[in-house]
Design a protein around this nucleic acid. Structure first.
Lengths: 216, 216
DNA sequence: CGTCGATATATCGATGTGATATATCGTCCT
DNA sequence: AGGACGATATATCACATCGATATATCGACG
């Protein structure tokens, strides 16, 4: 679960542990508030598995050529770091390997029956730009189906003989929240479908299209 | 966290492990989907701590005189069980002790800085009828304040330089969900305030009222 | 000049999950 | 008749994650 988060960040740029945590907190802190107690062991685990390698401590923070991720503040930090002529306490900078990239893509797509967690879905969506359009659509639809199932069982529960006021209120609110989630997903799905139709209007009935997309 | 759940159920009625899990799943399965791998150890833990005691396996399932909790199906199950003249695999029925009740109340109120989890709040609210009106109000207001704080930091994040479409959508949706939660809490708080005012209209300015409420 | 807060890595215990093992009983299919 | 299957029931394992804590370095601020 946080393997996915770590690999997703490292797929864009080399980073050290503390910085990984900071980015997860600042940029998608909605779900993940990863603790060091899980981060460092996870990095060791990934290193042992050959998914990442520790490279020499970078003397200065690489200004992200990838753009998109927290530009200004990163520059400020880099300036401070270089001016101070300090590496703080020696950092271990990690780089993702080919095996790690493969693992990342597997974790991203994996419709694994497991851990329904909203957090895992959020993480996958946050890295959705790494997915092929069709895979992205599948991700959204899978999640939608899951929520629809939950909604049905929640409704069944509300219909049951639960009398307590608070439990009932809780159940009703949860139901509404799920409905809200679903309509949000519907909007996303609609948007993806439109993008897909606009990109490839030639072969709309090609059912093999999503296996190995020509490019992206 | 599931100590709270277990004690909350046992506070109303003696139960064995499997039944505890079933009730949690069926009645407030919104949050808790407790696994046996945590339930049984938790029961042992609570037993060791003197919060619960294992009593002799009940020959028949007690028809809940407390009402409110899954009546019909329980009766059906009880009938089947007695007709079959079977206790299935010998069950351990647990009863809550005085110490357990004290612990339960502590866990219910505990504004413990820890584990902000929505699940913990949901659990507390589900058992809110065990709380004094003022404590109930405090619980709701504490949660509200917490969500307001989260909302502020979420908004700050959205205002930042996050360019990715999906991350942005995720953040916006999360923000809306939090707003929805807050307005739900506002309704609950309003309702509690009204109930409180109706119950004790004599001393509206007594600021000590919530320390040791006369009764419940 | 000394303390505080941010940066940085690491480890510990407690708690929770998912998978699996074991056993008994009722129900349904053939 | 019998046997497969699912529900009931308890228990344990490996593993993931969290929160707290330890350790260390540095810049900033009074």
């Amino acid at each position: 679960m946080l393997d996915l988060a770590i690999l997703g960040l490292l797929a864009e740029q080399e980073l050290h542990g503390y910085e990984i945590r900071r980015r997860l907190r600042d940029e998608l802190g909605l779900f993940v508030n990863i603790s060091f107690g899980s981060l460092y062991p996870a990095l060791s685990r990934l290193e042992a598995a050959g998914a990442v390698t520790a490279v020499a401590a970078a003397p200065d923070v690489a200004i992200p050529a990838t753009g998109s991720l927290g530009g200004e503040r990163a520059v400020l930090r880099a300036r401070r770091a270089t001016s101070g002529r300090s590496t703080k306490r020696s950092r271990k900078v990690y780089r993702i390997t080919d095996a790690g990239l493969a693992l990342f893509e597997r974790l991203l797509e994996d419709d694994g029956t497991s851990t329904d967690d909203a957090r895992t879905f959020g993480l996958r969506l946050a890295f959705a730009h790494h997915l092929a359009p069709q895979a992205r659509l599948r991700l959204l639809e899978r999640r939608r189906a899951q929520l629809v199932r939950r909604l049905a069982s929640d409704r069944a529960r509300v219909a049951g003989t639960t009398l307590d006021v608070y439990v009932r209120s809780l159940a009703e609110h949860s139901t509404e929240a799920t409905e809200h989630d679903i309509s949000w997903l519907d909007r996303l799905i609609e948007s993806e479908r439109r993008a897909l139709a606009a990109a490839a209007p030639t072969t709309p009935s090609d059912h093999r299209l999503d296996r190995h997309p020509a490019t992206h």
